[in-house]
Amino acid sequence: MSRRTVRTAVTFCAAVSLVAIAGTASSAPAPSPPSAPSAPSTPSTPSTPSTPSTPSVQRQAGQPVMVDCFWHPQVRPTDFILACGDGNSRLTSLRWSQWHPDSAVAEGFNVVNDCKPYCAAGKFHSYRVIVRLNAPQPWKKRPDLSHYTQLSLVYTNGKPDGFGQWVDLPLWN
Rank of each mutant, 00 (worst) to 15 (best):
D144T: 11
S93I: 00
H125M: 12
V105F: 08
W139L: 14
W139T: 11
H100G: 00
D144L: 03
K123P: 00
Y127E: 14
A104S: 12
L94Q: 06
H147I: 00
R142S: 12
A104D: 15
W96M: 09
N113V: 02
N113W: 00
V131A: 14
K140N: 07
R95A: 11
T149C: 05
P143M: 15
W96T: 08
D102R: 04
K140D: 11
S89F: 06
W96F: 04
P143L: 09
A135D: 04
H147Y: 05
W96R: 09
S103N: 13
P138V: 04
D144G: 06
A135N: 06
V111M: 13
R128C: 13
F124G: 03
Y148I: 03
Q137Y: 06
R142T: 08
Q98G: 08
P136I: 13
H125C: 09
A104R: 14
P101V: 06
P136S: 15
V112R: 06
A104N: 07
C119F: 01
V105P: 04
D102A: 07
N113L: 08
V105M: 14
F124Y: 15
P136N: 15
N110M: 11
N110P: 03
V111N: 07
D114F: 00
H100Y: 02
N134W: 01
Q98A: 15
V105E: 15
R95K: 07
D102E: 02
T92V: 09
Q137R: 10
C119T: 03
H147Q: 10
T149H: 06
T149L: 00
L133G: 12
D144K: 05
A135I: 03
R95D: 12
D144A: 09
T92D: 08
F109A: 11
Y118M: 00
D102K: 02
G108V: 01
N88D: 09
A104Q: 11
S126Q: 06
N88E: 07
C119P: 02
K140S: 09
Q98I: 07
N110Y: 11
R128Q: 13
K116R: 13
W99H: 10
V111L: 12
A104H: 08
Y118G: 00
W96P: 08
K116D: 10
N110D: 14
H100T: 01
V105W: 10
S89K: 07
A135H: 04
V112A: 10
R128G: 13
V111R: 09
P143K: 14
L145Y: 06
Q98T: 13
P143N: 04
H147F: 04
Y148T: 11
L145W: 10
H100I: 02
V112P: 05
N134D: 07
E107W: 13
V129S: 14
C115A: 05
G122I: 01
P117Y: 02
N110G: 12
